[in-house]
Design a protein around this nucleic acid. Sequence first.
DNA 1: GTGAAAGCGCTAACAG
DNA 2: CTGTTAGCGCTTTCAC
Lengths: 345, 345
Amino acid sequence: MKKGRTSIKDIANALNVSVTTISFVLNGKGKEKKISDAVIKKVIDYTESINYKPNRVAQSLRTGESKIIVFMVEDIGNYFFAKLARIIEDIAYKKDYKVLFCSNENDDARSRELIDLFYERRVDGFIIIPSGGIRNDIAQLIDKNIPVVLFDRYFEDLNTSAVVINNEDAAFKATNKLIAGAFKNIAFITTDAQQMQMRGRLEGYKRAIKEANLEPNVLQVPYLHLNSEKRKSLIREFFKNQEELDAVFFSTNYLTQHGLEIIRELEHLDVFKLGIVAFDDNDFFKIHSPSISAVAQPLKQMGEEIMKIMLKMLKEKNNRTPTKQIVLDARFIERESSRIKIPQD
Amino acid sequence: MKKGRTSIKDIANALNVSVTTISFVLNGKGKEKKISDAVIKKVIDYTESINYKPNRVAQSLRTGESKIIVFMVEDIGNYFFAKLARIIEDIAYKKDYKVLFCSNENDDARSRELIDLFYERRVDGFIIIPSGGIRNDIAQLIDKNIPVVLFDRYFEDLNTSAVVINNEDAAFKATNKLIAGAFKNIAFITTDAQQMQMRGRLEGYKRAIKEANLEPNVLQVPYLHLNSEKRKSLIREFFKNQEELDAVFFSTNYLTQHGLEIIRELEHLDVFKLGIVAFDDNDFFKIHSPSISAVAQPLKQMGEEIMKIMLKMLKEKNNRTPTKQIVLDARFIERESSRIKIPQD
DNA sequence: GTGAAAGCGCTAACAG
DNA sequence: CTGTTAGCGCTTTCAC
């Protein structure tokens, strides 16, 4: 293994053929360009023997393509996103694309930084869960003819391709599960983010509550500029004044996590008597006592739809592919926490 | 916002100055190269007005630098790695480096693919938790003079910079916590991976058990070619034949997760009576009933040490920086699961 | 103070 | 069938 980096020119010199020949062979165009089998073999053998790797930076510069797709979510550590990432990656690999993952923490500044970073590096496409304030950045990408597929949510006033679930319906059904479990005072803990998926979940909850002639009971935790301790204390305060409460529906994964922690520490709440439902599933929910019922998004299907659109855009680079919006249904996973509890009176 | 991508040449044309001038100004060398203030202002204003972003691919090709560091771990979704990633990123940003994260799933083939991907793209440095079989790939990077810092574990026969914790000592102390909690039959559930950090943990456990005149009781779950269901059934079988068992020490995060799931389903085990300790902390451990005691690695310190070495190597590019190995101590977080339990007889 | 031009490693049109 | 060469967008040396 020699020091430094070998170039295609070095190989041409070593083998006494031109760089063109090398380039053709390495790009699998040997046959097509009628390079002799002997030369092809010579080139292949040699490049393999020295473990030559072409400089993709130069390739990218020359071709204008990077064969890289960016997958940007709130938090790649999140069970839901991590699983989805895997599905997308598998599909991409089959088409010779690599996928780079990153987390925007639902933060506009960070999203922008990441978009810039990858845009400047000429990635071929973006799959993004947009944070609230990056509408214009997305619009710019589209303007520059770069394929973008949003998911989980999108901007209603921006014409983009997107894959989302029917949040209103999913929340409606989940709330009804609690209602069917004979719970009467069902709180909904959500964020105050004015993102469409959050609004949808809230609407679904409200509709179910209304149709059952119950009272809505909503806590909206501000989602900006709060660390988890602050959020937790808001949830704690909310629970403290809820003597009647018998069930809780958490609208996001991290709120569920906070909520379970608080319920655990409050004397007047018994996690085994409370009805609990979470939006988005998590590996720990089945280990928890009681196990936690959850609304699970159809990961496989989402990944496939996202990539179908992305690959199409990538292929039709020049003529602008018409945008496409897909809405999928979520699934309710019933566990212990949403079942009818032991009567208490 | 115009279509396509603006180049430095377009700007030169638009402003009637040469590309050199633009380049100098954009790289902050305006003053140094004695470009007039008027021209500097003109260039800055114009590039900002059209929101020009230099093509980093071309920059990279020209300078041979990408200003990107790769951070590769088993699973970036893991609490421990995610936190560490954040710390590293913060430090890198201050020195104008970006960090790209990726997960190798402790799989050699995947590690290799990722290393190749980034190597071909000329990233400036690698921070890696190596999977077992990539010793040679790491060696090649070092051979090619690319800065590499390993952490969590390293190859004893390869001279690399690395940051690790004292696993033997941490496991020894954690086991002693259980022993102090009056537990007598303490099982150690680990993988059969022959990686140094796993061997260290096993040794620490064994030493503590021996010094207390207890009997070691070890389950080594094969870590290759097993999906989580398979691993779980091995743990289930192990537990089934353990009537005497009163405590468990899990050597990794995912084994803890599996273990808790199994304990939950087995009639003869009561999670509230069992002593439990996990290696590596997790957000869910404090929500779990009972809350789970854990060995926590010193994240901040690890991140700082890793970056100290990395930045040094990056700066001294040419003369090969001597390698450096750092060993840090872990911390035991005592929660409910390791405390003395209600007497049972 | 500013510009011309070489060259980073690669692809591909064109020439022979 | 294979070689020569322009050029992707940028940095930087050297010239004026």
